[in-house]
């Protein structure tokens, strides 16, 4: 096998001499140029909507509706931000969102990590079957649960409260949250079991092993789950829409949607408000970029 392949490959290499052949070099260089050309060409449509967003958020109405469009705001209309963010109580929406975030992120981190610990490092009968069943919930379109879950919260008289948005997080994130259990479990499996054993020999309980051995070693993975949960909660629209009626209880996403319904032609205001809801997430991303990219990587490749 190897003999025949080298035999056929060798003469071809002789003929072209790839490393020195000017033709080959030229083709190679042409290909590099093409790669960069396409990548840069792709950056333009990716970035343009952001520029359009910021440019519109800082433009006054006179300049906004000039054709062909102008790109540099003149003057910079910072009043769009103050105007939009006070036209509806966005500070309140922000506060509401943060309250929900605190409880959702904490609950998800705690209950998902203890479950992942149980599914990866404690042996009990039926463990893998149970994990498999929980994992099957991932394939379930969450929209299917909309009506019955609403009726359940309605029966519990919890409509127009934050309970429907927070409580599921304290039960393994519920629904799509099992994904976090999966992710953390994958990470926990990479930690050598000898560490647990040593602690058990010293008389530690499983809780202490979890809290003093596994958690300190899993900060990057916990960070990823925390950030993903934060972003998902920040973006959540359908649940707040269904469960929250009082505008004083609205989240940012819900507030922005209702703002859009009221000020639907005030593009300066709308873009300023949109920018204000996007900015915190972008800042969070730059702060935690390394963890995030790693997290996405972990989900796809090992999944």
């Amino acid at each position: 096998m190897t003999v025949t392949t080298t035999a056929t490959a060798a003469p071809r290499e002789k003929q072209t001499e790839p490393k020195t052949d000017p033709n080959y070099q030229r083709r190679r260089r042409a290909r590099r140029v093409l790669v960069y050309a396409v990548l840069i060409a792709g950056v333009v449509p990716t970035v343009l909507p952001f520029i359009w967003l910021v440019r519109s958020a800082l433009m006054d109405n006179n300049q906004m509706f000039i054709a062909p469009p102008e790109w540099i705001p003149h003057p910079f209309e910072w009043a769009n931000f103050s105007g939009a963010l006070t036209a509806q109580p966005f500070a309140r929406y922000f506060l509401n969102t943060m309250i929900i975030e605190v409880f959702t992120v904490t609950g998800t981190l705690l209950t998902c990590s203890i479950a992942a610990f149980s599914f990866s490092r404690l042996r009990w009968r039926g463990r893998n079957v149970v994990f498999g069943i929980l994992l099957s919930g991932l394939m379930l379109p969450q929209a299917v649960l909309l009506v019955p879950t609403f009726l359940m919260w309605d029966a519990a008289q919890a409509i127009n409260t934050y309970y429907p948005l927070i409580v599921p997080a304290w039960f393994g994130g519920a629904g799509g949250g099992i994904f976090n259990v999966f992710l953390l479990r994958q990470f926990f499996l990479t930690i050598p079991y000898e560490l647990d054993e040593a602690a058990y020999i010293d008389g530690a309980s499983p809780w202490r092993v979890f809290w003093q051995v596994i958690v300190p070693l899993s900060k990057p993975a916990l960070m990823v789950v925390g950030i993903f949960t934060f972003i998902r909660t920040w973006n959540e629209f359908l649940d707040p829409l269904i469960y929250l009626n009082d505008s004083s209880k609205f989240t940012l996403a819900l507030g922005l949607a209702s703002f859009q319904g009221t000020y639907n032609a005030q593009w300066g205001y709308l873009m300023a408000a949109a920018t204000a809801t996007i900015l915190p997430i972008i800042l969070l991303f730059f702060f935690a970029q390394r963890y995030l990219i790693e997290g996405v990587t972990l989900t796809g490749v090992k999944g």
């Binding site: 479950a115 149980s118 404690l122 042996r123 929980l134 379930l140 649960l145 019955p148 039960f171």
Partner: peptide, 30 residues
């Protein structure tokens, strides 16, 4: 192993209860 069994179930319980209450029961109800 008794310790692991007890703690294993206990720590997985929130996720299991969550699956039953927020997935299985709503599915059946709907």
């Amino acid at each position: 192993s008794r310790l692991e069994r007890r703690w294993g179930l206990l720590l997985a319980m929130p996720a299991i209860v969550g699956f039953i209450v927020f997935t299985l029961v709503p599915m059946a109800a709907s």
